[in-house]
Amino acid sequence: MSHLFGHDQPLSVQGGGQRPSSFVGSFDPRVRVVAAGLFSVMVVSLHQIEFALAAFFAAVATMFMTDLPLRLTLKRMAAMDGFIIVMLVMLPFTTPGTAMFTVLGAEASKEGLQHAVLIGIRANAVVLMMLSLLAGLTPVGLGHTLYRLRCPAALVHLMMFTVRYISVLHDEYHRLRMAMKLRGFKARNSIHTYRSLGYLFGMLLVRSLERAERVLEAMKCRGFSGHFPMIDHLVFRQRDALFGVGFLMLVSVFVILDRFYVVAY
Protein backbone atom coordinates (compact mmCIF):
# COMPACT_ATOMS: atom_id res chain seq x y z
CA MET A 1 0.00 0.00 0.00
CA SER A 2 3.03 2.22 0.21
CA HIS A 3 2.57 3.15 -3.44
CA LEU A 4 0.27 5.84 -2.07
CA PHE A 5 3.34 7.51 -0.71
CA GLY A 6 5.51 6.92 -3.77
CA HIS A 7 7.99 9.66 -4.56
CA ASP A 8 6.89 9.72 -8.19
CA GLN A 9 3.49 10.86 -7.04
CA PRO A 10 2.42 14.01 -8.89
CA LEU A 11 2.67 16.82 -6.42
CA SER A 12 -0.54 18.65 -7.03
CA VAL A 13 0.70 21.46 -4.82
CA GLN A 14 3.49 22.14 -7.29
CA GLY A 15 2.00 22.11 -10.71
CA GLY A 16 -1.53 22.99 -9.72
CA GLY A 17 -2.48 19.40 -10.53
CA GLN A 18 -1.84 17.67 -13.85
CA ARG A 19 -5.28 16.18 -14.18
CA PRO A 20 -8.42 18.23 -13.85
CA SER A 21 -9.58 17.76 -10.28
CA SER A 22 -13.09 16.68 -9.41
CA PHE A 23 -15.80 18.94 -8.02
CA VAL A 24 -14.96 18.22 -4.39
CA GLY A 25 -11.24 18.24 -5.16
CA SER A 26 -11.44 21.76 -6.54
CA PHE A 27 -11.96 23.33 -3.14
CA ASP A 28 -9.23 24.62 -0.87
CA PRO A 29 -7.75 21.61 1.00
CA ARG A 30 -7.89 23.54 4.26
CA VAL A 31 -11.67 23.75 4.05
CA ARG A 32 -11.86 20.07 3.15
CA VAL A 33 -9.67 18.94 6.06
CA VAL A 34 -11.65 21.00 8.55
CA ALA A 35 -14.93 19.79 7.01
CA ALA A 36 -13.83 16.16 7.34
CA GLY A 37 -13.00 16.71 11.01
CA LEU A 38 -16.31 18.45 11.65
CA PHE A 39 -18.25 15.73 9.89
CA SER A 40 -16.63 12.97 11.97
CA VAL A 41 -17.36 14.77 15.23
CA MET A 42 -20.94 15.34 14.07
CA VAL A 43 -21.53 11.72 13.05
CA VAL A 44 -20.08 10.39 16.29
CA SER A 45 -22.51 12.55 18.25
CA LEU A 46 -25.61 11.28 16.40
CA HIS A 47 -27.88 9.05 18.48
CA GLN A 48 -30.55 7.97 16.02
CA ILE A 49 -30.07 5.39 13.31
CA GLU A 50 -32.19 7.35 10.80
CA PHE A 51 -29.92 10.38 10.95
CA ALA A 52 -26.76 8.30 10.94
CA LEU A 53 -28.09 6.64 7.78
CA ALA A 54 -28.79 10.07 6.27
CA ALA A 55 -25.21 11.11 7.10
CA PHE A 56 -23.99 7.95 5.40
CA PHE A 57 -25.97 8.84 2.27
CA ALA A 58 -24.52 12.35 2.40
CA ALA A 59 -21.09 10.69 2.37
CA VAL A 60 -22.10 8.48 -0.57
CA ALA A 61 -23.35 11.55 -2.45
CA THR A 62 -20.05 13.30 -1.77
CA MET A 63 -18.20 10.27 -3.06
CA PHE A 64 -19.98 10.55 -6.40
CA MET A 65 -18.76 14.15 -6.67
CA THR A 66 -15.15 12.97 -6.52
CA ASP A 67 -13.03 10.94 -8.90
CA LEU A 68 -12.46 8.14 -6.40
CA PRO A 69 -12.43 4.72 -8.07
CA LEU A 70 -15.57 3.00 -6.76
CA ARG A 71 -14.11 -0.49 -6.39
CA LEU A 72 -11.03 0.59 -4.50
CA THR A 73 -13.09 2.69 -2.14
CA LEU A 74 -15.47 -0.18 -1.43
CA LYS A 75 -12.46 -2.44 -0.81
CA ARG A 76 -11.06 -0.02 1.73
CA MET A 77 -14.41 0.22 3.46
CA ALA A 78 -14.62 -3.58 3.56
CA ALA A 79 -11.15 -3.72 5.15
CA MET A 80 -12.31 -1.28 7.80
CA ASP A 81 -15.50 -3.26 8.39
CA GLY A 82 -13.40 -6.37 8.90
CA PHE A 83 -11.99 -4.76 12.04
CA ILE A 84 -15.34 -4.31 13.69
CA ILE A 85 -17.43 -7.20 12.42
CA VAL A 86 -16.72 -9.43 15.44
CA MET A 87 -17.63 -6.69 17.87
CA LEU A 88 -20.82 -5.83 16.01
CA VAL A 89 -21.93 -9.45 15.86
CA MET A 90 -21.31 -9.91 19.57
CA LEU A 91 -22.98 -6.71 20.70
CA PRO A 92 -26.66 -7.81 20.45
CA PHE A 93 -25.93 -10.85 22.60
CA THR A 94 -24.05 -9.00 25.30
CA THR A 95 -26.28 -5.94 25.75
CA PRO A 96 -29.10 -6.45 28.24
CA GLY A 97 -32.59 -5.53 27.02
CA THR A 98 -35.72 -6.90 25.44
CA ALA A 99 -35.02 -10.22 23.79
CA MET A 100 -35.60 -10.43 20.05
CA PHE A 101 -34.35 -13.83 18.91
CA THR A 102 -32.06 -16.58 20.15
CA VAL A 103 -29.10 -18.21 18.44
CA LEU A 104 -27.72 -21.38 20.04
CA GLY A 105 -29.25 -20.47 23.34
CA ALA A 106 -27.90 -16.89 23.38
CA GLU A 107 -30.48 -14.15 23.45
CA ALA A 108 -30.09 -11.13 21.19
CA SER A 109 -31.52 -7.89 22.51
CA LYS A 110 -33.18 -5.18 20.46
CA GLU A 111 -31.10 -2.45 22.10
CA GLY A 112 -27.88 -4.27 21.37
CA LEU A 113 -28.80 -4.79 17.74
CA GLN A 114 -29.70 -1.12 17.36
CA HIS A 115 -26.42 -0.10 18.96
CA ALA A 116 -24.44 -2.40 16.66
CA VAL A 117 -26.20 -1.10 13.55
CA LEU A 118 -25.65 2.50 14.69
CA ILE A 119 -21.92 1.91 15.20
CA GLY A 120 -21.58 0.21 11.83
CA ILE A 121 -23.34 3.04 9.99
CA ARG A 122 -21.44 5.77 11.83
CA ALA A 123 -18.05 4.15 11.20
CA ASN A 124 -18.75 3.72 7.49
CA ALA A 125 -20.14 7.24 7.13
CA VAL A 126 -17.06 8.82 8.69
CA VAL A 127 -14.56 6.81 6.67
CA LEU A 128 -16.40 7.32 3.39
CA MET A 129 -16.76 11.07 3.93
CA MET A 130 -13.10 11.38 4.89
CA LEU A 131 -11.89 9.44 1.86
CA SER A 132 -14.18 11.54 -0.38
CA LEU A 133 -13.35 14.96 1.04
CA LEU A 134 -9.62 14.30 1.03
CA ALA A 135 -9.65 12.58 -2.37
CA GLY A 136 -6.84 13.80 -4.58
CA LEU A 137 -4.93 15.26 -1.66
CA THR A 138 -1.39 13.88 -1.67
CA PRO A 139 0.40 13.20 1.62
CA VAL A 140 2.70 16.14 0.87
CA GLY A 141 -0.31 18.31 0.17
CA LEU A 142 -1.77 17.21 3.48
CA GLY A 143 1.43 18.28 5.23
CA HIS A 144 1.25 21.73 3.66
CA THR A 145 -2.40 22.01 4.57
CA LEU A 146 -1.81 21.06 8.18
CA TYR A 147 1.05 23.55 8.33
CA ARG A 148 -1.25 26.28 7.05
CA LEU A 149 -3.80 25.23 9.66
CA ARG A 150 -1.19 26.08 12.30
CA CYS A 151 -0.21 22.57 13.33
CA PRO A 152 3.16 22.53 15.15
CA ALA A 153 5.91 22.86 12.55
CA ALA A 154 7.96 20.05 14.13
CA LEU A 155 5.04 17.66 13.74
CA VAL A 156 4.46 18.64 10.12
CA HIS A 157 8.16 18.28 9.29
CA LEU A 158 8.18 14.89 10.99
CA MET A 159 5.19 13.86 8.90
CA MET A 160 6.81 15.06 5.68
CA PHE A 161 9.94 13.03 6.43
CA THR A 162 7.86 9.99 7.25
CA VAL A 163 5.86 10.31 4.05
CA ARG A 164 9.04 10.75 2.03
CA TYR A 165 10.74 7.67 3.43
CA ILE A 166 7.87 5.19 3.66
CA SER A 167 8.14 4.22 0.01
CA VAL A 168 11.95 4.21 0.11
CA LEU A 169 12.02 1.90 3.10
CA HIS A 170 9.28 -0.28 1.72
CA ASP A 171 11.45 -0.80 -1.35
CA GLU A 172 14.37 -1.58 0.94
CA TYR A 173 12.18 -4.13 2.74
CA HIS A 174 11.28 -5.75 -0.57
CA ARG A 175 14.96 -5.94 -1.50
CA LEU A 176 15.83 -7.68 1.77
CA ARG A 177 12.83 -9.95 1.44
CA MET A 178 13.86 -10.84 -2.11
CA ALA A 179 17.32 -11.78 -0.85
CA MET A 180 15.71 -14.05 1.74
CA LYS A 181 13.49 -15.62 -0.89
CA LEU A 182 16.50 -16.34 -3.08
CA ARG A 183 17.97 -18.24 -0.15
CA GLY A 184 14.85 -20.36 0.14
CA PHE A 185 13.07 -18.56 2.98
CA LYS A 186 9.37 -19.26 3.33
CA ALA A 187 7.23 -17.74 6.06
CA ARG A 188 5.81 -20.52 8.25
CA ASN A 189 4.66 -20.88 11.82
CA SER A 190 8.10 -21.49 13.24
CA ILE A 191 10.66 -19.87 15.50
CA HIS A 192 12.94 -19.70 12.49
CA THR A 193 10.43 -17.50 10.65
CA TYR A 194 9.99 -15.14 13.59
CA ARG A 195 13.73 -14.89 14.12
CA SER A 196 14.42 -14.25 10.44
CA LEU A 197 11.73 -11.58 10.24
CA GLY A 198 13.12 -10.04 13.42
CA TYR A 199 16.59 -9.90 11.86
CA LEU A 200 14.99 -8.43 8.75
CA PHE A 201 13.31 -5.67 10.71
CA GLY A 202 16.41 -5.04 12.80
CA MET A 203 18.45 -4.69 9.62
CA LEU A 204 15.82 -2.33 8.25
CA LEU A 205 16.15 -0.18 11.38
CA VAL A 206 19.94 -0.14 11.20
CA ARG A 207 19.94 0.81 7.54
CA SER A 208 17.28 3.45 8.03
CA LEU A 209 19.26 5.07 10.82
CA GLU A 210 22.38 5.11 8.66
CA ARG A 211 20.29 6.65 5.91
CA ALA A 212 18.97 9.21 8.37
CA GLU A 213 22.52 10.18 9.31
CA ARG A 214 23.41 10.67 5.66
CA VAL A 215 20.24 12.67 5.12
CA LEU A 216 20.99 14.92 8.07
CA GLU A 217 24.54 15.52 6.86
CA ALA A 218 23.31 16.33 3.37
CA MET A 219 20.74 18.70 4.80
CA LYS A 220 23.28 20.42 6.98
CA CYS A 221 25.45 20.82 3.90
CA ARG A 222 22.61 22.69 2.30
CA GLY A 223 22.12 24.90 5.32
CA PHE A 224 19.07 23.29 6.94
CA SER A 225 18.07 25.48 9.86
CA GLY A 226 14.99 23.65 11.04
CA HIS A 227 12.53 25.18 8.67
CA PHE A 228 11.29 24.10 5.26
CA PRO A 229 9.88 26.68 2.94
CA MET A 230 6.38 25.47 2.17
CA ILE A 231 5.87 25.72 -1.55
CA ASP A 232 2.19 25.86 -2.21
CA HIS A 233 -0.44 28.03 -3.79
CA LEU A 234 -3.33 27.64 -1.41
CA VAL A 235 -5.82 30.40 -2.08
CA PHE A 236 -9.00 30.82 -0.13
CA ARG A 237 -11.65 31.94 -2.61
CA GLN A 238 -15.26 32.87 -2.27
CA ARG A 239 -16.46 29.44 -3.35
CA ASP A 240 -14.35 27.85 -0.60
CA ALA A 241 -16.10 30.05 1.94
CA LEU A 242 -19.45 29.07 0.42
CA PHE A 243 -18.51 25.39 0.64
CA GLY A 244 -17.45 25.83 4.25
CA VAL A 245 -20.63 27.64 5.24
CA GLY A 246 -22.80 25.15 3.37
CA PHE A 247 -21.07 22.22 5.03
CA LEU A 248 -21.35 23.84 8.45
CA MET A 249 -25.07 24.33 7.90
CA LEU A 250 -25.51 20.69 6.83
CA VAL A 251 -23.69 19.49 9.95
CA SER A 252 -25.70 21.76 12.25
CA VAL A 253 -28.98 20.61 10.69
CA PHE A 254 -28.02 17.01 11.36
CA VAL A 255 -27.12 17.64 14.99
CA ILE A 256 -30.20 19.78 15.73
CA LEU A 257 -32.62 17.36 14.06
CA ASP A 258 -31.01 14.43 15.86
CA ARG A 259 -31.53 16.12 19.22
CA PHE A 260 -35.03 17.53 18.80
CA TYR A 261 -36.82 15.43 16.23
CA VAL A 262 -37.58 11.94 17.40
CA VAL A 263 -38.53 9.55 14.66
CA ALA A 264 -41.45 7.44 15.77
CA TYR A 265 -40.94 3.72 15.48
Partner: peptide
Protein backbone atom coordinates in the same frame (compact mmCIF):
# COMPACT_ATOMS: atom_id res chain seq x y z
CA UNK B 1 13.66 15.41 13.07
CA UNK B 2 15.15 13.67 9.99
CA UNK B 3 16.26 10.61 11.99
CA UNK B 4 12.93 10.40 13.80
CA UNK B 5 11.04 10.78 10.53
CA UNK B 6 13.01 7.97 8.91
CA UNK B 7 12.48 5.74 11.96
CA UNK B 8 8.81 6.63 12.00
CA UNK B 9 8.64 5.54 8.36
CA UNK B 10 10.40 2.29 9.35
CA UNK B 11 7.75 1.56 11.95
CA UNK B 12 5.09 2.37 9.38
CA UNK B 13 6.70 -0.20 7.07
CA UNK B 14 6.59 -2.68 9.98
CA UNK B 15 2.82 -2.46 9.83
CA UNK B 16 3.01 -3.55 6.19
CA UNK B 17 4.99 -6.72 7.07
CA UNK B 18 2.72 -9.70 7.57
CA UNK B 19 3.75 -12.57 9.81
CA UNK B 20 1.98 -15.93 9.81
CA UNK B 21 0.25 -16.80 13.08
Amino acid sequence: IPATGVLSATFFVASLIHVPV
